[in-house]
């Protein structure tokens, strides 16, 4: 701050507040911590409540004791779910759907984003906007037409799509591909133009430029897109609810609701446990991939 004072010779004299900047910063930090704490409490309370409830027996849940305290901790809910074939089937279906959807999404949206960001062709800008607009159409608007379509395909070709988990592999990419393409366009556009020109002069084809330069350089973006695609397909509720009905075809979120709520009997302990277990894979993936989510991977490419 001293240097500022020196440069500012011509300015009218006023009391120079040395360190005023850091004081402002300290206040900003204090307030941001306050609101972050508030936010953290707000968003962590439900999972903590779920964790507490999942450790209780059904009797204790319905007893009139302090709901925030476990008197007789038990793992019976966990053991019950993890030894139930049904629950493991839901889990397997969810995993299969998510892994396939992430793969399909990346295989489509990465080359699409590269083409839209770099290979300027007629209408590419309009197409890029169009891709994003499709993402804005709510799925509640689409599930009925889609259902009719899949039913019609089943009638015409005999290929059974309704009530099969793999129908979700067709439906989910309509949600994930536009968004992932859009964020990858953004990442690819931030890569300096000279980098692909250098690659082209070095003799790389478009495909080699994509695989050997763009994908490694845009890895943080690729990971962000992967996380997004995984989260969307793992947590999707409406579509599987509509398109799958048999218990062997259900994915986790729908499975928990349909099998653990029997009439008006809510098996709260197991519902909480199932939800917690279901939330575990995205959490693990976030934690694991965040290590690779290194900002500024392009540092050193150009003058920067």
């Amino acid at each position: 701050m001293a240097s500022t004072a020196v440069i500012d010779k011509a300015a009218p004299t006023r009391p120079v507040k040395y360190g005023s900047m850091s004081r402002d910063r300290a206040w900003a930090l204090r307030w941001s911590y306050f609101f972050l704490m508030l936010f953290a409490i707000f968003s962590l309370l439900p999972p903590i409540y779920m964790l507490i409830t999942s450790l209780k027996s059904s009797a204790e849940i319905s007893a009139a004791t302090n709901p925030w305290w476990v008197l007789h901790p038990t793992l019976e809910n966990y053991i019950g779910l993890l030894t139930s074939n049904q629950f493991l089937t839901f889990f397997r279906n969810s995993a299969l759907v998510s892994i396939f959807v992430v793969t399909i999404t990346m295989l489509i949206s990465v080359p699409a984003a590269f083409a839209l960001a770099r290979m300027r062709f007629w209408g590419s800008a309009t197409l890029a906007t169009g891709v994003f607009l499709t993402y804005l159409i709510p799925d509640t608007l689409l599930f009925l037409p889609l259902f009719k379509m899949f039913a019609a395909v089943g009638d015409l070709t005999g290929i059974q799509l309704i009530n099969r988990w793999y129908v979700l592999l067709i439906v989910y990419p309509t949600l994930t591909v536009p968004f992932c393409t859009w964020i990858m366009i953004g990442y690819f556009a931030s890569i300096p133009k000279e980098l692909d020109e250098a690659a082209i002069i070095d003799g790389a084809s478009w495909f080699q430029t994509l695989t050997r330069i763009f994908i490694p350089v845009a890895l943080p973006g690729l990971i962000a897109a992967t996380i997004f695609a995984f989260t969307v397909s793992w947590a999707q509720f409406l579509y599987p609810m509509v398109f799958t009905t048999s218990t062997d075809q259900l994915v986790l979120p729908v499975g928990i609701i349909t099998t653990l709520i029997k009439g008006d009997v809510f098996n709260w302990g197991q519902i909480m446990t199932g939800a917690l277990l279901g939330a575990a894979p995205p959490l693990i993936i976030y934690a694991f991939l965040m290590d690779y989510y290194i900002a500024g991977l392009t540092a050193g490419a150009t003058k920067g």
């Binding site: 300096p192 000279e194 980098l195 020109e197 250098a198 690659a199 082209i200 002069i201 070095d202 003799g203 790389a204 330069i213 490694p216 350089v217 890895l219 991977l297 392009t298 540092a299 050193g300 490419a301 150009t302 003058k303």
Partner: peptide, 20 residues
């Protein structure tokens, strides 16, 4: 003729090194 078949090499203003 595409750039790769012209047998040329180019040095850019901002270096354009592959960062990875």
């Amino acid at each position: 003729v595409p750039p790769k078949d012209r047998d040329i090499a180019m040095v850019f203003q901002n270096y354009a090194l592959y960062p990875h």
